[in-house]
Design a protein around this nucleic acid. Structure first.
Lengths: 219, 219
DNA sequence: TGAGATTATGACTGACCAGTCAGTCAGTGA
DNA sequence: TCACTGACTGACTGGTCAGTCATAATCTCA
């Protein structure tokens, strides 16, 4: 094995340690000493591989995030229908919740901190936007094929991302017994069919709905 | 005005300053000196009103969160149909995104940090669970009335929360021009009717969907 | 084997910050 | 005018931690 791969391997080991520590304490509460100790090296050594704590953090996050996005995209391209594509997306992400739990915890926390930080990794936002655009594109295609009714692809993609993230969160919080396959099927079913009772119309509700919709408009 | 209300007013002023500062820097990056300076008082004075930085933070978060939850619940009770109740829920929350933006930023960040912290405010989790339970109850009622098709109320409530949070996030990030009323209507429409093209069935996709569903089951 | 190169170490420094407390001062009542 | 009160102040302390660097250990190859 070449020097390159030895040092690359060590780098990855440090990144793994970083993910483990950051996912337990969060960025601010975790110290570089913690990470070094967890990796079984001295702090000075860590600084041979990463120029700062922030860089270490961002690399730990970005490498897995890129891998997950790429895998989800690949699996979606392999699938035929929109249903299957979206199912594949959810499946890949939920698999990561098992195989790379630490990474996902950091990812979810970082997502939240988007709202209270001015300087967040531009890469991260960029990647999120790209993912969103890709899914929106997939939805737009399905719409053109007549597979789904006419809806705004970008808005649907956004809602789908929201639900997807919710699944990950509930999986990680363990709020209840979590059967991944069932959750995926339910989410897909909900997204495609909604909750409305198709047999019994809700005509009697038309009036008050209009009123509430108007209130929403004023807001 | 009584002494009580003077000191209560000052307390509120400090909480406002705390929300402003925490929403810009996050909990860890913000210092108590920042908050005191923003409130126009000395640090020592702040400690007359709050026993610690953490207490200040949690109070700043909890008071608004309780108010928002209560208002949403009240508006939902006022509404008649499930559609109107859910609309009201989204409307109240989006109004908060305008009137109490700082609070919402902190709330979203805190939500994210659930995944990397062991010790989070038990109050917060409790409140989130209660909200979820309430909405799930509302959905269960609608199901009993035959207003919606048979579906798992808790899972629907979870998905609805996810979408609701997504709306808030997109509103705060300003990723695009955001017309609250339109976004609300779209979300409701999506939740009730889904995206499936009711006219053209998707029978041709049945086979491969089964296969992907199976793959998801294995995961 | 040994000299030079590479990798690793951990004590140290300077900056930061939560929380304290001795002292200040505005207001009040006599 | 003066004594008293308690809200308020901000310098200070003890502790933490990111990042550095002089030194040591290990490796490589002639």
């Amino acid at each position: 094995m070449t020097d390159q791969s030895v040092s690359e391997r060590k780098r990855c080991a440090i990144l793994d340690a970083a993910r483990a520590v950051f996912s337990h304490k969060g960025y601010s509460e975790a110290s570089v000493d913690d990470v070094a100790e967890h990796a079984g090296i001295a702090k000075g050594t860590l600084y041979l591989y990463f120029k700062s704590k922030e860089r270490l953090y961002l690399d730990a996050l970005a490498s897995d995030l890129r891998a997950m996005s790429a895998e989800a995209k690949q699996e979606m391209e392999r699938a035929g229908t929109l249903r299957d594509k979206l199912r594949a997306f959810l499946r890949v992400r939920l698999e990561y919740a098992t195989s790379r739990e630490s990474f996902l915890r950091i990812y979810l926390a970082e997502y939240g901190s988007l709202f209270v930080k001015t300087a967040i990794s531009p890469d991260l936002i960029q990647l999120l936007r790209e993912n969103m655009r890709y899914v929106a594109g997939v939805i737009a295609q399905a719409k053109r094929r007549g597979e789904i009714r006419t809806v705004a692809p970008y808005a649907v993609a956004a809602a789908f991302f929201d639900i997807s993230r919710g699944l990950l969160e509930r999986r990680l919080l363990g709020w209840k017994e979590f059967r991944a396959a069932d959750e995926i099927e339910f989410a897909i079913q909900l997204l495609f069919s909604g909750i409305q009772n198709a047999e019994k119309g809700n005509m009697h509700a038309k009036r008050s709905s209009k009123r509430e919709a108007h209130r929403a408009k004023i807001a």
